[in-house]
Design a protein around this nucleic acid. Structure first.
Lengths: 215, 215
DNA sequence: GTCTATACGGTGATAGAC
DNA sequence: GTCTATCACCGTATAGAC
């Protein structure tokens, strides 16, 4: 494993952004390591090697391995959250379009790829022994669930629904989670577009009177 | 963490079952440790302490930590597989009853509890760096998917379906996976019966003409 | 089979030069 | 800020007594 982060324009950065750059660089290296080695084999030495800086410097920026790991989860969580939030904001006022946008966002390459999903699972596997991990992603997880739930209610009220809004919301979230899991663990032929169209088919069955919008 | 495995009738066991007993005892301790400490903090010393035997003796039975971990995943996988296989065998010939039995089996206390699920996630989080893990659970995972898929086809052919059998199967599996995830990471008020009835509601929507059978 | 003692490498964190 | 050198500890695995 060797450094692969570009350092161009390095000297031109000011102190603050230089610090942010280094931190980000280390978080990226941590994600790479957890994916490639598993969390049990992820060490400061290997993270440092991967980032192309010294191990001492890693501690300089993050004080401890625990903090680096927490910040990595935090980064992942922020990325995931802002991804669906942005999609929601850009989707316009129609609740069905919003729901579709949320589903599509769940499969955006930035969040839906084997590396990131592998790291999510690693953190989830540690979450029972580290309540901090649970807390870091808990609030935004709940926000996502509630958003889906409210959209299902709104669509059901307007168009009707073959399921209670609560069950509809569970189904959709479950489908997304299931696709993530299948993507991580299943055969390699998994296609993004197929995942989305499958969930859209489910959507069409739950809300039969919807006007057709998506692909 | 201290020993909690009863050792009654210990002296009366013969060599072979004694060996199996010890191995099982150590696998249980490993599961406990991964759940309570996370896989990154699970060590032979702590497993030994938890099982109430010496660390040297752990290596005597499993040769290496890696092998103990593999055998633990193997045990989990066998338990999970035989659980749904048995439920399927006991369900009679009707495909809808079989599908319902499979769903109910997925939430049997022996497999559906926070400890076991936490350990599954830990292994899944390591699976990309350890192809052996992927192989251990891959075959039986595929068997489960295919069983669900075939049942959906059979039910759809007989009763009709609002979804393609493939999408129906994805939905049901996704719901199960989603419930597992929600149970591990979500609020504590999660109820087994509620999970099952929610999936059954989805089932009722996918196969609308089914005769009502189970709750 | 089971234990204790120990070898030996790796691990997180610190110190201090530049 | 960044590095190298180093520390004290913990990790797996082995050896050998019982």
């Amino acid at each position: 494993m060797s450094a692969n982060v570009t350092e161009k324009n390095f000297a031109s950065r000011n102190r603050k952004s230089q610090r942010a750059f280094r931190k980000r660089q280390l978080i990226d290296a941590t994600i790479d390591c957890i994916d490639k080695l598993g969390i049990s084999q992820t060490t400061l030495a290997r993270i440092a090697e991967r980032a192309g800086i010294s191990q001492g410097n890693v501690v300089f920026y993050f004080h401890s391995k625990d903090e680096l790991l927490e910040q990595t989860l935090h980064y992942l969580n922020d990325e995931y959250t802002s991804n669906w939030q942005t999609a929601l904001d850009d989707a316009g006022p129609d609740p069905l379009s919003q729901l579709q946008a949320l589903i599509e966002a769940s499969f955006a390459p930035q969040v839906f790829n084997r590396k990131k999903i592998s790291v999510w699972y690693a953190f989830w596997g540690e979450s029972r022994s580290r309540p901090k991990y649970m807390r870091i992603c808990g609030a935004s997880d709940r926000a996502f669930s509630e958003t889906i739930s409210k959209l299902c209610q709104a669509i059901a009220a307007r168009d009707g629904s073959s399921l209670s809004p609560r069950t509809a919301a569970y189904s959709i979230e479950g489908m997304i989670d299931g696709m993530w899991q299948n993507f991580l663990l299943g055969p390699t032929g998994f296609k993004r577009a197929h995942a989305i169209s499958t969930i859209f088919e489910l959507l069409g069955s739950i809300f039969p009177q919807r006007r057709q919008i998506g692909p």
